[in-house]
């Protein structure tokens, strides 16, 4: 913890080198979802492109389907008509009908999409589709009028968009060329080169700092946080020396029994104050939510937060107070997300 509080240097060279997946030049990118009229991923009305594959594996992750860099098959019970078309279609024989529906053997499934293509009711869906640049660009341009009137634009998110930085950089550049505002939403666990490649074409940087203690960070996300903190400094340095990005927002998820501790918020606050004060204009504390429970079920995974309740309002308020007193400009601290509702008030 101590080391991360010290003034960091704007380089990841010195950071203990954890291997990152190599990237190859792509004609297409694997995209999980293109979300239009997104109102939560930066200013204005935006189209958010969720790229598949992540360098972290946060145990609370709300989008577990975004972690794997490969396409994944998922089954929606409410859409299934029970026709068994998929069972016969699967070349790997990975599908079977069990008591509570269609079961997918994850060890056999190759994510080839044959079953999803055959399913008449779209109950089987292949998460992750290849998109080429032109198609993706046409898709985001459809909402240009709404971007223009809301000072919105395009956000690249994930997963971790930097995992496909060659494609994403070209995409952001193309958006920029057409006058669209661009935002990069990153967890910071990427190479300095990939980060800078994306920063060059981003107007806004949405940067996650989840946990200040490296050991805890590793427990929560599978990786230590040195590279993330160093990259935050890289980004700040990049902003100081380049015209864009012009805006830098930090986001911290508040997960009960994990990141939602006073020490963590105070620590992140001090880190921001020490290294990023002059460039960060917003620090968002995002209250944990539990809406993704069923996503884990559908992916055949267990979610460690399954019994976790939402934060109560008091706890959230307390963390906001701590954040504001941590040394950052208090005005940049914002809280978002749902808090627990008092059971008494829902009695009717």
């Amino acid at each position: 913890m101590k080391s991360s509080l010290a003034k960091a240097t704007a380089s990841t060279e010195s950071v203990e080198a954890e291997p990152l997946p190599a990237e190859s030049a792509q004609r297409t990118a694997l995209v999980l979802n293109v979300q239009r009229m997104s109102t939560e991923d930066g200013p204005g009305i935006r189209t958010t492109v969720f790229f598949k594959g992540c360098t972290l594996a946060c145990y609370w992750c709300h989008n577990p389907e975004s972690i794997s860099p490969r396409p994944q098959t998922t089954w929606f019970e409410t859409r299934c008509i029970g026709c068994r078309t998929c069972i016969a279609a699967c070349p790997q024989r990975a599908l079977s009908v069990v008591a509570d529906g269609v079961s997918i053997r994850r060890d056999l499934c190759q994510g080839c999409g044959t079953c999803a293509a055959a399913c008449p009711s779209t109950a089987l869906e292949l998460l992750g589709t290849p998109w080429n640049l032109d198609t993706l660009l046409l898709e985001v341009l459809k909402d240009r009028v709404y971007f223009d009137r809301s000072a919105g634009g395009v956000t690249v998110s994930g997963g971790e968009p930097a995992l496909q930085s060659l494609f994403v950089a070209r995409f952001l550049e193309a958006c920029r060329e057409r006058g669209l505002h661009t935002a990069l939403d990153t967890c910071g666990m990427c190479s300095q080169a990939a980060l800078e490649r994306l920063l060059a074409h981003s107007d806004l940087l949405l940067y996650d700092i989840k946990e200040i203690d490296s050991g805890r960070h590793k427990r929560f996300t599978g990786r230590t946080n040195e590279r993330i903190l160093a990259n935050a400094v890289v980004a700040a340095e990049y902003m100081r020396s380049h015209p864009t990005p012009s805006t830098f927002w930090i986001r911290t998820p508040l997960v009960p029994a994990a990141t939602a501790t006073e020490a963590n918020i105070r620590g992140i606050g001090r880190f921001i104050a020490a290294n990023l004060q002059d460039v960060v204009s917003r620090w968002e504390l995002c209250a944990f939510n539990n809406l993704c429970r069923d996503k884990y079920v559908r992916l055949g995974e267990t979610w460690r937060c399954v019994d976790e309740d939402l934060l109560d309002q008091e706890a959230l308020d307390a963390l906001v107070r701590i954040a504001r007193a941590s040394g950052v400009d208090p005005d940049i601290v914002v809280a978002t997300g749902a808090t627990r509702i008092d059971p008494a008030s829902t009695a009717n």
Binding site: L291, R293, G337, A338
Partner: peptide
């Protein structure tokens, strides 16, 4: 949508659906 997170209502479990309904009727 719950700030920053979207889900298709029909594809989340009953229990969570109930919670969202409770939330909705109280504009929370």
């Amino acid at each position: 949508r719950v700030t920053g997170y979207n889900a298709y209502f029909t594809s989340i479990g009953r229990e969570l659906q109930d919670e969202i309904i409770a939330r909705e009727s109280h504009s929370k």
